[in-house]
Simulated scan of single mutants.
Amino acid sequence: MTAAREETARRFSWRWAAACLVLAGLSSWASPATTAPAEPPSRQQVQSAAERVRADPNLPGSKTEKTLRFKDQDKKPEDKKKDRDGLGWLKDLVTRISEGARLLVWALGALALAWLVVGIRRWVKVRAGGGRHRMAPLPSHIGSLDIRPESLPDDVGAEVASLWQRGQRRPALSLLYRGALSRLVHLHAVPIRNASTEGECVALSEGRLAPMSLEFFARLVAAWQLAAYGGRLPPTAGVLALCAEFDARLGAPAGPAKAAP
């Protein structure tokens, strides 16, 4: 812009100087040799002189210059902002989506935290419940059978054999099964409960008894089930064998301390 203005001023100076020269020449040409005052040139004379100046090849002519400008340079900042905001709806959409995604992430984080808290509470409750379960009182009866140690004889096997030989077969088998359950609960800590069935008692004993003791208890349960549910009595030899192995397979109860002789 500065260079264009300087060029225009220079050309205007040339034209002004040329016009002055023309006017001076006309004045000297029109004025007589006498001392009479000079008359001003007419309008036609001025126009003719100006045409001769414009036709002079030695004087710079007029040129038309065009300046190329970028469209954005002529615009005001407000117009440029409007052009940039032509896709404002897209920017708003992206902004809303990002805000929604951020809210969704926070919501998922809150849900995960709540789920973690609930899981920890359940785990603590289960652990506490397991501790209470382990410390719960031992059952005194399995079904209708009394398994308290004080309700049983010290030598279960000998008492069962005596009852069997006296012909009291079902009471003998009942005492044998009661004594076995009492040993499992109080000596081997088998988690038998009041409503546990014969099959459940055998399954709960797995891992608590040695293999030979587990096999012995399974035979004892089979003899009891045969009489209780099958209406048949097991062979005498089998019952007496169970009586003889009872303490060896299931352990003898801790009796009261005896005074030294």
Rank of each mutant, 00 (worst) to 15 (best):
P256L: 10
D85K: 15
S98V: 14
R127A: 12
L93Q: 04
L103S: 07
G129D: 05
Y177N: 03
D247G: 15
S48W: 10
A228M: 08
F12M: 13
A237H: 05
L209K: 02
V53F: 09
L104W: 11
R178C: 10
R132K: 05
K75H: 02
A172I: 06
R166P: 09
R170D: 12
H188R: 10
E215G: 01
A260D: 11
L250W: 09
L108Q: 10
L90D: 04
R102H: 09
R43A: 08
S144L: 13
S42I: 06
I142N: 10
K76Y: 00
R249T: 04
G255T: 11
A110D: 00
L187H: 03
E51R: 11
H188E: 03
V22D: 01
H133P: 02
T8L: 07
L175F: 02
L21D: 14
P256T: 14
D79K: 05
F12N: 10
N58I: 11
R11D: 09
D146W: 06
A218I: 15
F216M: 04
G199I: 08
P153E: 05
F216I: 03
L116D: 02
A195E: 14
A112G: 06
D247M: 04
P139G: 06
S98E: 09
A244L: 04
A38V: 04
L220Y: 11
K91C: 00
Y177S: 05
A33N: 07
T67A: 08
S140Y: 09
E159A: 15
D154N: 07
E51M: 07
R84D: 07
E206P: 00
A128P: 03
H133Y: 13
P149H: 07
A136K: 14
H133E: 14
A161K: 08
P32G: 03
